[in-house]
Amino acid sequence: MKFRAVIKKSGEWWIGWLVDLQGVNAQERTREELIESLSIGAQDMLDTEIRCEPESQITTIEIPDPAWVFEHSGNLL
């Protein structure tokens, strides 16, 4: 799976967050450490058990890749 991440250098730190998974953000000393922390955060969030109410269902949906995936594929994680 791929998720969009906004990352930037802020002073001595690299900061970033995942656009597609609210709540996944990180701050690290290097770009590589930041990417790794965001990846771990995404994995942890996706591994979190989701409880359903009776009569509810959990399902997945698939959508086509948006145009930006093809236009900017060199800049993705």
Rank of each mutant, 00 (worst) to 15 (best):
S73D: 11
D44M: 04
W14L: 09
P66L: 10
P64T: 06
W13L: 15
S10A: 14
A42W: 01
S37E: 15
L46M: 10
M45N: 08
M45K: 06
E62W: 13
I63P: 06
E49D: 14
M45I: 05
P54H: 05
P66E: 12
F70S: 06
L38V: 07
E55D: 15
P64R: 02
Q43F: 01
G23P: 07
S37K: 05
E49V: 09
E53T: 12
A26P: 07
V19F: 05
D20L: 03
V24E: 05
Q27R: 10
S37P: 07
W13P: 06
K8W: 01
D47G: 04
L18F: 06
L18S: 02
N25Y: 09
E53P: 01
I63R: 13
L77T: 06
V69W: 07
V69I: 14
L18N: 03
R51W: 13
W13E: 14
P66V: 11
W17N: 05
W14F: 12
E55Y: 11
P64E: 11
L77R: 06
D20Q: 01
D47W: 05
E32C: 12
R51I: 11
K9V: 05
I7D: 00
T48C: 07
N75L: 02
E28P: 13
V19D: 09
D65F: 11
Q22Y: 11
G23L: 04
R4M: 10
W14D: 12
K8F: 00
S10C: 11
E36Q: 13
Q27D: 08
T59C: 10
F3C: 04
R29A: 10
E71Y: 01
E33D: 14
I61P: 06
L76F: 05
W13T: 12
L34G: 10
K2A: 06
V69K: 07
W17M: 03
S56G: 02
L76P: 00
L18H: 03
S56R: 01
E28F: 10
T48W: 00
E36A: 14
C52P: 08
T60W: 08
I63T: 09
I35W: 02
E12P: 09
D65W: 13
F70P: 03
K9A: 09
G23S: 05
F3T: 00
W68H: 04
V69F: 10
E12M: 10
E28D: 15
L21C: 11
E33Q: 15
Q22T: 15
